[in-house]
Design a protein around this nucleic acid. Structure first.
Length: 502
RNA sequence: GGGCCGCUAGCUCAAUUGGAAGAGCAGCUGACUCUUAAUCAGCAGGUUACAGGUUCGAGUCCUGUGCGGCUCACCA
């Protein structure tokens, strides 16, 4: 703490003491609002459209009276009068304190002690100022919360990225764009629920704490339950529990939930992030593809008002149908390598080395192909695109293509150079699933902490019979990034993970 | 984890080759009854992230640490 901040805080505390000394509670219990600031402005506009006689009658009848409340964002004192900007969750409105001598001694003193940042409630009639600003002419005012800290600068806002994340409330107060991003995020999630609910999907909740972290391959967070004296993992995917529910007879289920991966942090990765997974019985990945492009495009149009969204230097067009491209063809197109010609890891690695790629000799064929995707293909996936049909090594939970044991019915959706969704026709043959898990375990490196051990309970569930099912996973944070044009995942997560400051 | 960049007043930013740490906003005092980045006059406000080093002299150069950003690696 520097002396200057101390001094400002000290001044505010002195004001607080003065206010208390006059018998005023600076933190009272509530306030009756008749209107939000936005509603008040609308009310005034509506009144403006009436004819002169009606207007005068309304004014006389006190029909322009409102009670509004919010945070003081600006103070323009001008001798006996003053203009304040008042902001609430809906917007802002101007306040006019005309001739402050109308107030009694107590209110006058309180008025003098009001600061930018304080929360107040006011009542009085609405009016237009000469310059056409909708304004509340303040007849009465009440302090609702005294602010003891100075707000960020009014014009430039808060730009210190570190501070914006650590003190997100200041970001939300100071930067309107930040607030808008999270409003959009909330609407996106609501729209997803509405879309899926309308289609007969059932929203469910499954455990975050799991004895095995299955359904994906990622390093999990670990924790410990004391009463059970048992270690648990935080889930890294929703998949295996949702499939159990398909087996249980819910034909359409989804979960919107937080998942946790103990891996690197980047502009596209946060250790905890929000995933949508949905499972629908009796459909395949082609049906899921149609549903996804329909869902995302509807959301874009509903919330952003259009199919085309500016993202970085590009204009993304989410109008269906999205481009469909076989994974194999995409890799050939962007890297020149046809993985079908290299049936094992060694030959593929040799070919990749020719492209001067730095290739980890530990990587198996699936991971090598994955590297080809992320190096050559993903950066080119700007317009919404489905990549279809993946090698079986990369997809232990997906069903192989009919007549081709090496490939599975899987797609990933990309846009803006990011993967936003992953889906497949789910493998429902319990014998094959067990073999795939065993194969996966065999290829696992001894030092590799990321590989799950086999989820026997899930295999048992599969043995009771799971209908043919199409499954989908969507990265909600990335979807919000795309829709709001944000280049960093931290801009769309209210409280992103940061290192603790000393 | 590696590389590069950044950290100056509460906030937004300056500071020439290494030569007296500044401005705007916010704050305080005063003037002002239609302002809206109000205006005008004045005042106050700094461990230049932290710890060392080089130097007559360091915000500036060097080393280390912390935190952040970008990027690479990692990442179904």
């Amino acid at each position: 703490m520097t002396s200057r901040l101390d001094r400002i805080a000290q001044q505010r505390r002195q004001k607080l003491d003065r206010i208390r000394g006059r018998g005023i509670d600076p933190y009272p219990y509530g306030y009756h609002r008749s209107h939000t600031t936005q509603q008040a402005v609308e009310k005034l506009k509506k009144w403006e459209s009436k004819d002169a006689t009606e207007k005068a009658a309304d004014r006389l009848a006190g029909k322009l009276q409102v009670n509004v409340a919010g945070r003081i964002m600006a103070i323009r004192r001008m001798g006996k009068s003053a203009f304040f900007d008042l902001r609430d969750g809906s917007g802002r409105i101007q306040l006019l304190f005309q001739d402050i001598n109308q107030f009694d001694e107590k209110d006058l003193e309180l008025f003098k002690d009001l600061d930018i940042g304080d929360i107040i409630g006011v009542s009085g009639p609405l009016l237009w100022t000469k310059s056409g600003e909708p304004t509340v002419w303040v007849a009465e005012f009440t302090l609702l919360a005294k602010s003891l800290q100075p707000l960020p600068e009014k014009w430039h806002g808060l730009s210190d990225v570190d501070k914006r994340y650590r003190q997100r409330y200041l970001d939300l107060i100071a930067n309107a764009e930040a607030k808008e991003i999270f409003r959009v995020r909330s609407q996106v999630i609501a729209a997803i629920r509405e879309f899926l609910n309308q289609r007969g999907f059932l929203e469910v909740e499954t455990p975050v704490l799991q004895p095995l972290a299955g359904g994906a391959l990622a390093r999990p967070f670990t924790t410990h339950h004391h009463a059970l004296d048992q270690d648990f993992y935080l889930r890294i995917a929703l998949e295996l529990h949702l499939k159990r529910l398909i087996i249980g007879g819910f034909d359409k289920v989804y979960e919107l939930g937080r998942i946790f991966r103990n891996e690197g942090i980047s502009t596209k990765h946060n250790p905890e992030f929000t995933m949508l997974e949905s499972y629908e019985a009796y459909v395949d990945y082609q049906d899921v593809m149609k549903m996804l492009e329909r869902m995302v495009s509807l959301i874009a149009r509903k919330i952003m008002g259009r199919y085309e969204i500016e993202f970085g230097d590009n204009n993304l067009n989410f109008k269906p149908p999205w481009q469909r491209l076989e994974l194999r063809q995409a890799i050939i197109k962007y890297s020149g390598i046809d993985f079908e010609q290299y049936p094992d890891a060694d030959s593929l690695r040799a070919e990749m080395l020719k492209l001067k790629m730095e290739v980890d000799p530990q990587k198996d064929r699936g991971r090598l192909i994955d590297e080809l995707i992320s190096t050559f293909v993903e950066p080119n996936m700007i317009q919404p695109t489905f990549l279809l049909d993946y090698p079986v090594e990369m997809s232990p939970l997906a069903k192989t293509k009919p007549g081709n044991q090496r490939m599975v019915e899987r797609f990933e959706a990309f846009a803006g150079g990011m993967e936003i969704a992953n889906a497949f026709t789910e493998l429902n043959d319990p014998i094959e699933q067990r073999e795939r898990f065993l194969q996966q375990q065999k290829e696992r490196k001894p030092e590799d902490e990321t590989t799950e051990t086999i989820d026997q309970d899930f295999l048992l569930a599969l043995e009771y019979g799971m209908p043919p099912t199409g499954g989908l996973g969507v990265g909600i944070d990335r979807l919000v990034m795309l829709l709001t044009g944000q280049q960093s995942i931290r801009q769309v997560i209210l409280f992103p993970q940061l290192r603790e400051k000393p």
